[in-house]
Design a binder for these strands. Structure first.
Length: 581
RNA sequence: GCGCCCGUAGCUCAGCAGGAUAGAGCACCAGAUUCCUAAUCUGGGGGCCAUGGGUUCGAAUCCCGUCGGGCGCACCA
């Protein structure tokens, strides 16, 4: 591993050393919690290059006046050779100015680390399993699924970059009633392929055309063998074939989006291995599952409801309003029953679990988290398990809501949207807002506005950089780190913004918020475009200054590194860094 | 009725585990192209951060209530 240390990481270290020194001198009590201390750029650049809240955070637990503590800290920090000024401001902020050399060193670090600039060891190599997409294998992906797919994929890349091992997993719900419905729907298409007039697809089955080829393939393979046969003869077979076909389709849709999983886990396989039964046994032994009778549903009247004894999980202990069955009255597993076994199994292969779910599953978060916590906790240490809820995407067409339902066959497919506006626009749009806020996605508007999409703004910055370097090369000029001291204030400003990438990666990874990367890239691109245009009025500020090869080399060096950073960030988002536009 | 999420500029959204004068894009107005890509830039107008309380040196950010919007509240998945 390189010795190169990035500037913010270095200053966090310097600050801790300064605090250690104060402790050693008896100025500061030892053992104070430093977790809330930050080193960040001040909001107003006029205040300096770096700012820390250390004195304000520590003053109270230390029983000291913030300004007095700040003065002691400033005395320590001022000793650092790269610090040109250290001042106390406001209620106790410490503002530092950093010598130009230190920023030029950071520019050299961009180059030395290249595509690894921003990579962090924060994760410590621990394994995080991220489960995302996991749509039922009953049809193509539609736009409602898209957000979770993009967010999960970008989060996976981000966590990898932040030092985790990542398993990207898709849970295939191939065991419930919906896949039987799928098999029956396919059976009709199969008969249709054999020449039978099947008419309208009956209510409750999947009417989509995408099942036609599946039926045709089965007709080709089996002839009319199952046309008149009872369901019990073909259901399992057709279910398997149909699920496999749907997964192929879904994977193709995901590929259009640039989303790829490491692992597809089958619910049916999980059940075949007896995992839910194992889980039930354990839960009963720990009094978390008991046989009981549910109360009649409130608020609605179900004619066929009757009290029956079921194995119930004590989810009321964890804030649920009702204990939840893990098996149905026919003995088969409920979704919840299989799901807790599934998560328990996942926890055996990872140090932490993250699920990306649609908000329509919010109601089940408490119980599954409780079950997983109980089961993994019994082994000594709970496996951290987070559920990130991705809010609904309201689909509109010219302002009118589009009701989507696979059952009705009425939906906007992901493939349609991607082919219309492109993968990069879809991904960037999904990643320029935090996932827990609802969003509207107006198909027409996005198509129309795709040319104004911020993604192009970021891509254009990289394309400009590439073009400049190409142009310079044609004139025999190349980036060079030889004379970086020729760079002035404007160039340093660009470096200062870019230098935040490492701390941003860590913050975004810790918060599991990939959208922060998207906003950072936009800011960096803005700084670059702005700098570029300075050259419009002042030709001496252009990248290529023909009469000054050293300066040109240094500016091209800067441009090349900014380009690298943009590419590092875009790679995390899964957006192409095009070289020409 | 209960649970979860959201409410910031006309619109779409940021606001980095409380911090200094609340930001960006779109839209609107006024400018910049003999010049490395104008898919760009510069400037301007526009905000009781839904609302009422609380916590503290300090709140858009944390806590409670209210209002408004969304999603759930099955032996479904």
């Amino acid at each position: 591993m390189s010795q190169t240390q990035t500037l913010y990481a270095a200053f966090t270290g310097h600050l801790n050393a300064a605090l250690d020194a104060l402790e050693a001198a008896g100025t500061l009590p030892s053992g104070l919690n430093r977790a809330a201390i930050t080193v960040e750029p001040p909001r107003d650049p006029a205040h300096g290059d770096l700012s820390t809240n250390a004195a304000m955070v520590l003053a109270k637990p230390a029983g000291m006046n913030p300004r007095a503590l700040a003065e002691a800290l400033v005395a320590e920090l001022a000793k650092l050779p790269q610090v040109t000024s250290a001042e106390i401001a406001g209620p106790g902020f410490i503002n530092l100015r950093v010598a130009a050399d230190a920023w030029l060193d950071e520019l050299r670090a961009f180059a030395a680390l290249g595509s690894d600039y921003g990579r962090s060891a924060m994760g410590g190599g621990s394994t995080v399993n991220i489960e995302y997409v996991s749509t039922n294998p009953t049809g193509p992906m539609h736009m409602g699924h898209c957000r979770g797919a993009v967010v999960g994929d970008a989060l996976a890349s981000l966590l990898e970059f932040a030092g985790h091992k990542v398993i990207r997993e898709y849970y295939v719900n191939d065991a419930g009633g919906q896949v039987d419905v799928l098999a029956r729907s396919v059976h009709i298409r199969y008969r249709e392929a054999l020449g039978e007039a099947v008419g309208e697809i009956p209510e409750g089955l999947y009417p989509g055309d995408y099942l036609v080829p599946v039926g045709e393939a089965l007709a080709k393979e089996f002839g009319d063998k199952y046309a008149k046969a009872p369901e019990s003869d073909w259901l399992v077979l057709f279910r398997q074939r149909a699920v496999a076909a749907m997964l192929t389709m879904i994977r193709a849709d995901l590929a259009l989006l640039g989303v790829e999983h490491d692992l597809f886990s089958s619910e049916a396989e999980l059940q075949a291995k007896g995992k839910p039964a194992e889980a039930e046994k354990w839960l009963r032994a720990h009094d978390l599952v008991y046989d009981g009778v549910l109360e009649a549903p409130k608020g609605k009247t179900l004619e066929d409801w009757e009290p029956v004894e079921l194995p119930l999980f004590r989810s009321t202990k964890f804030g649920d309003d009702q204990d939840r069955p893990i098996r149905k009255s026919d003995g088969s597993w409920t979704y919840f029953g299989a799901d807790l076994a599934y998560h328990y199994q996942k926890a055996e292969t990872a140090d932490a679990l993250v699920d990306i779910w649609g908000a329509d599953h919010a109601g089940t978060v408490k119980r599954i988290k409780a079950a997983v916590a109980a089961m993994t906790g019994a082994k000594g240490k709970e496996t951290p398990f987070e559920v990130k809820l991705v809010q609904m995407v309201q689909l509109l067409r010219n302002g009118e809501p589009v009701k989507m339902s696979k059952r009705s066959g009425n939906f906007v497919t992901l493939a349609d949207v991607v082919s219309e506006v492109g993968k990069d626009v879809v991904r960037f749009t999904m990643l320029t807002r935090k996932p827990e806020a609802q969003m509207d996605f107006d198909f027409a508007k996005v198509v129309e506005a795709s040319k104004d999409n911020p993604v192009f703004y970021v891509q254009y910055a990289n394309a400009r950089i590439c073009s400049t370097i190409r142009k310079a090369a044609a004139e025999g000029l190349a980036p060079s780190g030889e004379a970086l001291e020729l760079l002035g204030e404007e160039e340093l400003e660009l470096i200062k913004i870019a230098a935040q990438f490492p701390r941003l990666v860590e913050a975004a990874a810790a918060a599991r918020e990939p959208h922060r990367i998207a906003f950072f890239l936009h800011d960096l691109a803005a700084a670059f475009h702005s700098y570029w245009n300075v050259g419009n009025d002042r030709p001496e500020k252009r990248f290529i200054v023909a009469q000054n090869g050293n300066l040109t080399g240094a500016r091209l060096f800067l441009a090349a590194q900014i380009g690298q950073l943009l590419r590092n960030g875009l790679a995390l988002l899964g957006v192409e860094a095009v070289e020409e536009m």
